[in-house]
């Protein structure tokens, strides 16, 4: 039914890969991981497919990052990894080796709120607060890449973060305010 042609053979794998000792890996249910969270080097021992979200919340007790759906829809679990926002409920820790991770706990410095947090507070952008950590992270990632976003760009940047309290109005206001203050 399908016509398949081998056009070229780029490489033929060797049968032995010295880097890997399969049986060791097979038996092992967890792995050592090193990454940096909010500027601090951390090491954890975790099953490789454990979600980054759970590693943060359970292993590191950083519970600011929230779970709202477990399917990458609500964005409450957003964190910044190597400069880009992602849903930590969809990222296995094995992909975090040597990563640089920023969570909501890393935004304020020495008890002083990040300009975004300050703007959220002043504008009334946090109500129940459960979407707030993810929302702040999405906004931080936006402002790091685009210092003066338009209102439409802000809406697009937070479209992956569901909020059921605010109608988004004051969140967009706050991000705009933080951008113009910067």
């Amino acid at each position: 039914m399908c016509i398949v042609s081998v056009i070229s053979v780029i490489s033929v794998a060797k049968n032995v890969c010295p880097n890997l000792v399969w049986s060791d890996l097979e038996a092992k249910k967890s792995m050592k991981l090193n990454f940096r969270v909010n500027g601090v080097e951390r090491e954890i021992d975790a099953p490789p497919m454990k979600r980054l979200l759970d590693a943060l919340r359970e292993d590191l007790r950083l519970t600011g990052t929230k779970e709202g759906c477990g399917e990458g829809e609500c964005g409450a679990c957003s964190v910044i990894v190597d400069g880009e926002a992602l849903n930590s409920c969809l990222a296995p820790v094995c992909q975090m080796q040597n990563a640089n991770i920023i969570t909501v706990e890393g935004l304020a410095r020495d008890g002083k709120l990040d300009p975004l947090q300050q703007a959220f507070l002043e504008c009334g952008a946090a109500q129940c607060g459960i979407c707030t950590p993810g929302m702040l992270i999405a906004a931080r990632a936006l402002l790091d890449a685009n210092r003066r976003p338009s209102r439409d760009e802000i809406k697009e940047a937070i479209a992956g973060n569901l909020c059921r309290c605010t109608g988004y109005v004051k969140i967009i206001d706050a991000i705009e305010q933080a951008a113009s203050a910067a």
């Binding site: 519970t63 600011g64 929230k66 969570t103 909501v104 935004l107 507070l121 946090a126 607060g129």
Partner: peptide, 18 residues
């Protein structure tokens, strides 16, 4: 300003699953 705003903005607020 929201009374519990600081806790909610810094991730310090404890929800039940935390």
């Amino acid at each position: 300003l929201r009374k519990e705003g600081y806790e909610k903005l810094t991730g310090a607020a404890r929800y039940i699953d935390d």
